[in-house]
């Protein structure tokens, strides 16, 4: 098994003239929960989307569970098999029921039988407490429920790594905690997790490591206590003050 679950080495990425990632070097250990914070446009989404190849990077190296993420389609597929992702806007398939949303990727992607896939899907839907909505369509459930379904959909594929890109930013305040609760349960297992979030209370409770990104670069990283109470970098101090107020 590879030493680190994920390791970025001097990763750079450009959108035209815009330098979106600057020499990002970062290791995430197996079972670790990493929280990424930073102001809007700092490259958090870009970084997390590189992990499962949704974005290509320009130079540097990125390895996930021993596979190098790059142009090689087979390596990319091997990575995507082990990495799940939850988006800010849920991205449930609107024309499929909640259950079918969770079953279809199993049947198509890892060739599970429909019976087995249904069983696993129902198990995961129960785990995130939306099993009673299994036969509804996405537009018939609330935002918090949608995001939990999206989580169950990813978990049905037994990933080793989960990526969360601002999973609660599109939710009404009263629904945020129901999603954070199931995520918190997830962090207690041996899942490796990267989460972009502005929920500082949550970050403090679950993170093993916190990084702050500004303008495409990591300006400070450390354990949550240190980052939230005695940040070293002046930018971090300002940011923590801003999100605390």
């Amino acid at each position: 098994m590879a030493e680190h679950a994920i390791s970025f080495e001097k990763l750079n990425k450009y959108y035209g003239d815009h330098h979106a990632l600057r020499d990002v070097t970062l290791d995430v250990d197996h079972g670790e929960t990493l929280v990424i914070c930073g102001p809007s446009g700092s490259g958090k989404s870009t970084l997390i989307r590189c992990v499962n190849g949704l974005e290509a990077y320009a130079d540097g190296a990125l390895s996930v569970l021993g596979h190098s993420v790059g142009d090689d389609e087979r390596e990319l597929e091997a990575v995507r098999k082990r990495v799940g992702m939850v988006f800010q806007s849920f991205n449930l398939f609107p024309h499929l029921t909640v259950l079918e949303n969770c079953v279809l990727p199993q049947v198509r992607g890892i060739k599970r039988s429909r019976t087995e896939a249904t069983q696993i899907a129902m198990g995961q839907l129960g785990r995130v407490r939306v099993a009673e909505h299994a036969h509804k369509f996405p537009d018939q459930i609330s935002g918090g429920q949608k995001q939990r379904v999206a989580l169950a959909r990813s978990l049905s594929l037994d990933p080793d790594i989960m990526l969360f890109d601002e999973p609660t930013s599109a939710l009404d305040p009263e629904m945020i905690s129901e999603v954070l609760d199931v995520m918190q349960e997830l962090t207690r297992g041996n899942m490796t997790i990267i989460c972009v979030t502005h929920e500082m209370g949550f970050a403090r409770a679950v993170a093993d490591k916190v990084i702050l990104m500004v303008d495409g670069a990591i300006v400070e990283q450390g354990d949550p206590e240190q980052m939230f109470t005695v940040p070293k970098h002046p930018i971090t101090q300002d940011f923590m003050k801003a999100v605390a107020s």
């Binding site: 995507r80 098999k81 990495v83 988006f87 990727p105």
Partner: peptide, 20 residues
């Protein structure tokens, strides 16, 4: 986001087209 979700769920290309 629909195709991105399908890609990250590792659904094969034909399935992204036909199912999604």
């Amino acid at each position: 986001g629909q195709v991105e979700a399908a890609v990250s769920l590792n659904m094969p290309f034909w399935s992204q087209v036909v199912d999604i």
